[in-house]
Every structure is written in structure tokens, then in C-alpha cells.
């Protein structure tokens, strides 16, 4: 392997790692907020807990989307 190819290969791995790491920040904050507020609401109204849990999971999955865009980009960097 030539030195230039080796540099490109190494840069791919570094780039994919940085991409995934930064992409995970936003969804983590968002899901933390969703979880915290759902807990608040459940503590205030325990009879709504089942209903709230389903809504919380749906909101979690929507907040996760931006992280998944990062995942797709890092897969494209690695394998495409």
C-alpha cells in the first residue's frame, strides 16, 4: 500500500469516528430531556404512566433521527 492510500484509509477511520461522536451529542441531550420531563409528568400523575410511556418512546425515536443521519454518513465514509 502506498503512503497516500494509507493516509486516506486512516483519515476515513478518524473521520467516521469524529462524525459518529458529534452526531451522538444532540440526540443524547434530547432524549435526556424527554426522559426527564416524562418522569416529572409521571410523578405528578401516576395514573397516566402507561399512556406517557408510549408517547415518550415515540418521541425518543423521533429525537434519534439526527443521530441516525450521522450513522449513515459514517457508514458511507467507511464502506462506500
Amino acid at each position: 500500500m502506498e503512503i497516500s492510500e494509507a493516509i486516506v484509509q486512516a483519515a476515513k477511520y478518524v473521520g467516521a469516528g469524529i462524525c459518529m461522536g458529534f452526531a451522538a451529542i444532540g440526540p443524547a441531550i434530547g432524549e435526556g430531556n424527554i426522559g426527564a420531563h416524562a418522569m416529572d409528568a409521571m410523578a405528578r400523575q401516576p395514573e397516566m404512566a402507561g399512556n406517557l410511556q408510549i408517547r415518550m418512546i415515540i418521541a425518543d425515536a423521533i429525537a434519534e433521527t439526527t443521530g441516525l443521519y450521522g450513522l449513515l454518513i459514517s457508514f458511507m465514509i467507511l464502506f462506500a
Binding site: 425515536a61 423521533i62 434519534e64 433521527t65 441516525l68 443521519y69 450513522l71 449513515l72 457508514f75
Partner: peptide, 16 residues
Amino acid sequence: ISHSCRLFGNIFGGGI
């Protein structure tokens, strides 16, 4: 775009 990429990312990424 966001509607389709959400599903695609989850399933494709999950499989990998």
C-alpha cells in the same frame, strides 16, 4: 426525505 431516511437509517444501521 426525513420521513424515509428515519426508517432507512434505523433498519439498515441495525442490520449492519
